[in-house]
Simulated assay, not measured.
Amino acid sequence: MKDERTIVFLMDSYKTLNLQTDTSLLLMEVLIERGHRVLWLEPAQLTLQHDSVMGEVRAVRSVAPFELAPMFALALDQCDGLLVRIDPPVDSYYFHITYILDYLCSSVVQFNDTAALRNFNEKVLPLRWPELAPPSLVTSDSAKLLSFREKHQDIVVKPLDDCSGRGVTRYQQVDDLALDNLTAEVLDTHQKPRFVMAQRFLPAVSQGDKRVFLLRGEVIGYVNRVPRQGQFLANIHQGALCEATELSEKEVAAIDKIVPFLRENGLFFVGVDFIGGFLTEVNLTSPSAIRQINQVMGEDVHLYMVDRILSEIAEQNAGPSMPLWTCCVKSVA
């Protein structure tokens, strides 16, 4: 096929994927149907061999049923695009992956840029636009956390390195157990200090948490995620119900404000979250919910996503991909 592209998906193990929400498989399926080569790579198979980024990859033969070809070694500089789709936690292992990917040739288009994945935290990033975010505190000091709760009375505390609502706790009641638990939030499982985010609880979450999906700063779809009765977590992984929605003028204005920053930092796939008009998270690592957006909007948003991926690659590489038996010139030890 003329202009066939070779695109690597850096993925978690297939058996760990949530097939109800996963976006990557949708994109793979369309790319394969269009005649492009899709390669599956997991972090354990990623290495930096001197200054060459290597991967033990497997071609994706089909998505449904899921089938991979035998593994083979490949210098990733020979590929056209890399989609980093591994989920948090964003820990030292995750950071080390980004250090390795820094050595990729610039001809390999990264979605999202790995330096941006390393430099910006999904929960902290909204505070670059403080007027858009709810009252927030990032701290590893239990006294400051207690003071924040005393001021706002009803708060949520979030770990900075996870996703899907995992570890998010609401502190509403004041009793000894709640205070002990709140104090312990700033300690990890090894009793070492850690930073957490506290935010004033937003009662509007009962009406839903909007996920807005941006593609190079362009809004391509949105869905409202409503917590189950008696719950406050509006994550799909926590059982939230999905419904159609519209964006308010306040939310559109907030998106317009953050888009230049996203574009400047190579953030191609972004999932922006709003509760009651407040910007609560800017999801960068592996934003999902495209299946739910397709369902409530009656669209095939993933087809447009693939169009834009291929367009970005064509613009940067201006021609067909390199044959797999060629490679970028690298220094040797």
Rank of each mutant, 00 (worst) to 15 (best):
G165C: 08
A115K: 14
A184G: 07
V109G: 00
S140F: 05
D113Q: 10
Q172E: 12
L177Y: 15
A184K: 15
S142R: 12
L187M: 13
L125C: 11
V108E: 02
V157F: 07
P134N: 12
H96Y: 10
S136W: 04
V84M: 11
E131N: 13
A143M: 05
F148Q: 03
K192M: 09
L187Y: 11
Q207C: 08
D180G: 05
L137G: 05
D175S: 11
L160W: 03
S147I: 03
F148Y: 08
L137F: 07
F201S: 08
C105E: 14
D87R: 01
D141K: 11
V124R: 07
R166E: 12
P203S: 10
K144I: 01
P130G: 08
T183F: 12
D87H: 02
L182W: 03
R128K: 15
F201W: 09
P88S: 11
H96I: 00
S92W: 05
Y94W: 10
P130S: 10
N181R: 14
F111Y: 07
R194V: 09
P126V: 09
Y94L: 02
F111G: 00
D113H: 13
P89A: 05
A143R: 14
Q199L: 03
S164R: 10
F95L: 15
L179N: 09
E131W: 12
K123D: 09
A178N: 12
G165A: 07
D102P: 06
V186Q: 01
D141S: 14
L125Y: 02
L160M: 09
T183S: 14
V186D: 00
Y93M: 09
S142F: 09
Y103R: 13
A143S: 14
G167K: 05
I100A: 09
I86Y: 04
L125S: 08
S140I: 01
Q207M: 10
P126Y: 08
Y103C: 08
E122N: 05
L117F: 06
L160H: 02
S142N: 03
N112L: 05
I100M: 14
T189R: 13
D175Q: 11
E150F: 02
L125H: 01
A143V: 11
P135Y: 11
M197R: 01
V196Y: 00
P130V: 12
S164Y: 00
P159H: 03
T139M: 14
R85S: 03
T139W: 08
D188P: 04
R128I: 06
R170T: 10
L160Q: 03
A178Y: 03
E122H: 03
L160R: 02
P134K: 04
V205W: 00
P193C: 04
V174L: 13
S142W: 10
S147W: 05
Y94E: 02
S136N: 07
